[in-house]
């Protein structure tokens, strides 16, 4: 099941050229790019691991793409990678754009667990199939 979160996630995966164009858009707006990765696809998992430190003071997308290439070298295939663009201007001081750039080749999806409670009430929870395996071995 394809994970859809962040911008453009209902579209086919972007090519490097398309990612680069988005990066340039962010840079032109004065936002700082940042790369993050995780192997836990649960939608409530909002805090992903940071790849290095946020990329401040970069003028051109090529510099950011260098960092993405370095991140991919380590994590592509075994992790989701997303880029986030941080707007530091007053009043925002927050993420303005978030987009998944890389995903594992096979995404098994989620199962629903039902828990019977007192008075025949049922509590539902979702669990990603991959998380039954330990972190770091989920998409190998």
């Amino acid at each position: 099941m394809r994970i859809t979160q962040g911008t453009f996630s209902f579209l086919p995966d972007f090519t490097d050229e398309q990612i680069s164009a988005q990066v340039q858009y962010c840079l032109d707006n004065g936002w700082a790019l940042n790369f993050e990765y995780t192997d836990d696809p649960h939608p409530r998992n909002t805090y992903w691991e940071m790849w290095g430190i946020p990329l401040f003071d970069i003028a051109d997308a090529a510099g950011v793409m260098m960092e993405l290439a370095a991140c991919r070298k380590v994590h592509a295939g075994t992790n989701y990678i997303r880029m986030t663009a941080f707007d530091s201007s007053h009043g925002w001081e927050s993420i303005r754009l978030s987009m998944i750039t890389d995903r594992p080749a096979h995404e098994p999806g989620f199962m629903v667990e039902r828990q019977e409670q007192a008075g025949r009430r049922i509590a539902y929870t979702t669990r990603a199939y991959v998380t039954t395996r330990p972190a770091g071995e989920r998409y190998t």
Binding site: L55, D57, I58, A59, D60, A61, A62, G63, V64, M66, E67
Partner: peptide, 11 residues
């Protein structure tokens, strides 16, 4: 060094 190269990219 890589940091500086990244900053200089496109310039």
């Amino acid at each position: 060094t890589k940091d500086m190269i990244k900053k200089a990219m496109g310039g």
